[in-house]
Amino acid sequence: MSDAAVQPGPFVVEPVTPGGLDAGVGGAAAELPMMTLWGDVWRRLRRNKLAILGSAIILGLVLTAALAPLIAPYSPDAQNLSNFLAPPSLRHWFGTDNLGRDYFSRVVYGSRVSISIGIVATFISVAIGMSLGAVSGYFGGKIDAVVMRVADVFFSFPFIVGAIIIITALGPSFPRLLALFIAIGVLGWATVGRIFRSSVLQVRQADYVEAARALGAGHFRILTRHVVPNAIAPVMVYSTIYTGLVILTEAALSFLGFGVASGTPAWGLMVADGKSSLTSQPWLVLFPGLAIVLTVLGFIFLGDGLRDSMDPRLR
């Protein structure tokens, strides 16, 4: 009945009982279990045995790396030249190497290199890939064309060869671990970028993005509040699996002699050092090799589980 010319006044609303709203804030949550989408993912993930196994392996690995001095019975660098190349025994569970160092302790300390590479290099790849992918997919046009052609260049490069070139270019005086972070991190962004771009492209067309534009939201708000949260799932899955691949790549680079400095306890390096005596002292290759395989599998299992539980078709 109100006249159109009248200034729109405050909403006329039936009075809400005092305290009713405030009570509702806490009350609603108790009424029904809160089910966010991530909560949903978590519920499904818990039922996936392989994913639980993967998480357990990763958790174990992280704990091992963090608590290495408490777990390792010996110092990884303590030499005992009177007891070198000893086979696995109760005193030395994984035997000793050619300098008489306790091999179990070295494998335990080796997790530190793998974990730090896995986390830092993945983080670098995901950070670069997500920013470029988001910009590329969201704005499209020329920016998209340029970014994707650059990504193609990175794709056309064999990963290991590219990493070797970067590490060599940085020079021998450059800290080796840092060189690995940079080489692997920078080379790996292209896949993340492509995956994120394609899911951004999909989300960008959703009506809620249109609605946000109609409300007057700026690009930054639309990207951070609407597009990224809804497009991130495939990247989460990939980066989990990718962490495993990064650890494998580090091992391969160390094996080839482009990784961490020789003498450092690192799994790839230990496999490389042990390979010449594979027939006589197989444990020198076996234990670090197993550690690599187990770690990579752990990340792949978890990534697989994440993908299954985030699949919208199963929702």
Binding site: G24, V25, A28, A29, E31, M34, M35, T36
Partner: peptide, 12 residues
């Protein structure tokens, strides 16, 4: 709508 349902998600 019930204002108490404000902290629920659309899929509910």
């Amino acid at each position: 709508l019930n204002p108490e349902h404000g902290n629920r998600y659309p899929h509910e």
